[in-house]
Design a protein around this nucleic acid. Structure first.
Lengths: 218, 218
DNA sequence: GGGAATTTGTCAATGTTTTAACATGAAAAA
DNA sequence: TTTTTCATGTTAAAACATTGACAAATTCCC
């Protein structure tokens, strides 16, 4: 049996990066990797890599390091990427289309089943083999087809109302791209917010910051 | 003079959220807010809010709280959102178009000056009043017009080469949406990575995790 | 105007995450 | 086969982040 110690969010958020780097290594035909090598790639320390991986079990071998294909597979299982969680997408504007076209859902644990929009000029159009549906059908569709997750790509408006509807029809996981935080009152709902503008503001802050710090001379 | 204590990343990453919530409050006509109210909205503690804001100065008033428009403006200045950093965007695919149409650059410290792509069928097309340029012109354009930042929306390929070109032509800040980490060898470069698939994998992990934790019965 | 109720800024304590150190064991080399 | 090298898993220490507590200052209400 595995240790029951709760995994911290900091560790969890690093797992996808390990996964990506391992995929790169695997694709390059690299067969073994040390915690030190991985750390260099990640921009962290060997100690942290070992600490992270050991949360889930001893995948390495002393004197050798980690077997790349094996470790890759382990992390894939840890993340649960072999799942086929059924998901709907709301909002087929630029953002929704970008998400649909940019992300490989199948490799990341999901199957995108349907896309919805409220804009009549979009309803009925095709995207990646899906016909865009009227958001009015959302509740029934999710209940009947037992959706697991929803990707919220509504660009401007509030996201609370569709959130409510989706929760009522059984959806418990939300990937939220809207400008507003999706505050779920239900403790069994999982919300993963992606705030692009927050990230841009952070970039802006860091740019100012580096200016003031760099200006030692002048 | 301000205290010279270095601001931690944890604090910096919360600033944009404060900013968003304050904007909401301001738009609703709310004039004052307590650390406790803000904490409730943020899902954190009053203590943390006060601690965060006090990194930058005492904006509040005992017995009253914080003046919403004033605090909003303070955070706007702290983040440096009044800047007009000149930026170019690379990759006018779905992702690039979503970024262009979805993000309000002007309110977040940037002016988007030009968009580039390597796809001949996109070059010359219009988007948001900009004519898409050939990526071959990138280096010269950035050098001549002194760009500050680049938004990298190249969906699949590696992002290292354009990064090199951009750095050579003076760009020091990068907002990277590509699937690969942009590993800049230059210490004065600022890279803000946005890894959508990482976020999706995290969602997947949390879904599995909640399943196993919830299943106390059964 | 005065006293109760608020609410901040800050210090101290608690909790968490990261880094460092090292004993142990496998692999590689001699 | 034996020794040296390498690199893990783990424990302990250090650094960092969050929370709690409270004095000081303001506002609100009577």
């Amino acid at each position: 049996m595995e240790k029951n110690k709760k995994i911290s969010m900091s560790v969890i958020r690093r797992l996808p990066r390990y996964y990506r780097f391992l995929l790169e290594l695997k694709n390059s035909g690299v067969l073994r990797v040390s915690s030190h090598d991985l750390a260099t790639k990640m921009g962290s320390t060997a100690s942290q890599v070992r600490q992270d991986l050991n949360c889930f079990g001893g995948f390495g071998q002393q004197g050798y390091g980690y077997d790349v294909p094996k470790l890759f597979e382990e992390i894939r299982v840890i993340l649960g990427l072999e799942h086929d969680y059924k998901a709907v997408l709301l909002g087929v504007g630029n953002l929704g289309r970008a998400v649909i076209n940019h992300i490989s859902f199948e490799n990341h644990g999901f199957t995108l089943m349907a896309a919805f929009d409220s804009n009549p000029s979009l309803i009925g159009t095709e995207i990646r083999g899906m016909t865009v549906r009227d958001v009015a059908e959302l509740e029934e569709y999710c209940r009947v087809n037992r959706m697991d997750a929803a990707f919220l790509c509504l660009p401007k408006e509030s996201v609370e109302q569709p959130g409510e509807i989706l929760y009522r029809s059984g959806v418990r996981a939300f990937w939220n791209f809207s400008h507003f935080d999706l505050a779920m009152k239900y403790s069994d709902a999982i919300v993963e917010n992606v705030h692009l503008s927050d990230s841009l503001m952070t970039l802006c802050y860091r740019m100012n910051d580096s200016r003031s710090t760099d200006k030692v001379e002048e």
